[in-house]
Computed example of a mutant assay.
Amino acid sequence: MTMQRTRLTLNQLEETLLITLWAKALDSKLRVPMLGDTRSAEIADRIDYDFDTLKIKAALTYETALRSKKLDDAVRSFTAAHPDAVVLDLGCGLDPRMVRCRPTAGIDWYDVDFPEVVALRPQFLPEPSHLVGADVTTTDWLAGIPGDRPAMIVAEGLIPFLPGSSFQVLTHALTTHFGTGEIALNGYTRFAAWAMKYHPTIKALGITAAAGFDDPREPESWGAGLTLIDEDFLTRAPEVADWPQPLRGLTRTMSRSTALSRQGARILRYRF
């Protein structure tokens, strides 16, 4: 029996969710997966789309899977310590993070993305998270989320697509609304964010990336009450030992330099 595949109607910005979805699907098929997200592979199989047009290289597959693993670990750690927490996955796309993290019954999980994107999630991800259809450059959607509990806020691959100072404004609104919690994100330097627009997968979709920030302590100056907990360089992660050559050797060479490691990929965690 032939599987019925779904053709998605997305604009260019929304279509970027397919990049991370496909990278995680490719990782799940590796001999030694970093993330092992078979659900992403199942979702991709159900979508009528030529994923080969995204031109995803091995480096992006490994990096995307490892950064998701690190962010998942941050969520699990926080929710284990705060079993009544609220989790916000900002720019969730079709990522099954809740499936991977398996939150306990006391956790309220909110998946946040454009209305057109979250409308797709029940079709592919029937798990009962709270779906919030919103443009995260606005903040009025926060009014419907309880703010009297600790919050774990995840932003994967989101910052470069937010124009101007909108991420700073969003961060201030989040920390004001919740009062206590953590923010975990993959941090792009200014150069990395600028270079993204020349990456084949971004260039093919016609997306112009916005700015990042170099100093991991810069967000502490945004007036949002943030304190840096950790800057975790993926170049120095033990999982790199399972990457193929020459990617493993190149990554290990980069790991010797903090400046080069920042241009690669890093997971930043802040408390507020």
Rank of each mutant, 00 (worst) to 15 (best):
S166P: 09
V86S: 07
Q4I: 15
P146H: 03
A119F: 07
D230M: 06
D108L: 15
P146Y: 00
T137G: 04
D111F: 01
Y110N: 04
S28Q: 08
V240A: 00
Q12P: 06
H199Y: 13
D45V: 06
P146R: 10
L268G: 05
D111E: 15
D113P: 12
S166K: 13
P238A: 03
T171I: 07
A155G: 12
F51C: 09
A25F: 05
A184I: 02
A193I: 01
A85K: 07
G223W: 07
R46K: 15
G225L: 13
I47P: 08
L158Y: 09
P126A: 11
V240T: 10
F51L: 07
R190M: 07
Y198N: 13
A74F: 08
T171C: 15
V112D: 05
A105I: 06
G91A: 09
T61K: 03
R190A: 04
T189Y: 04
A85M: 02
E127M: 03
R31F: 02
L71W: 03
L162G: 07
P96T: 12
P216V: 14
T104Q: 15
A237P: 08
D84I: 02
S261F: 01
I107K: 03
A80T: 07
P200W: 04
L205Y: 10
E14W: 00
N186G: 06
F114H: 11
P128A: 12
R46T: 08
S261D: 06
P115G: 06
L234S: 10
V112C: 03
S68D: 13
E239A: 14
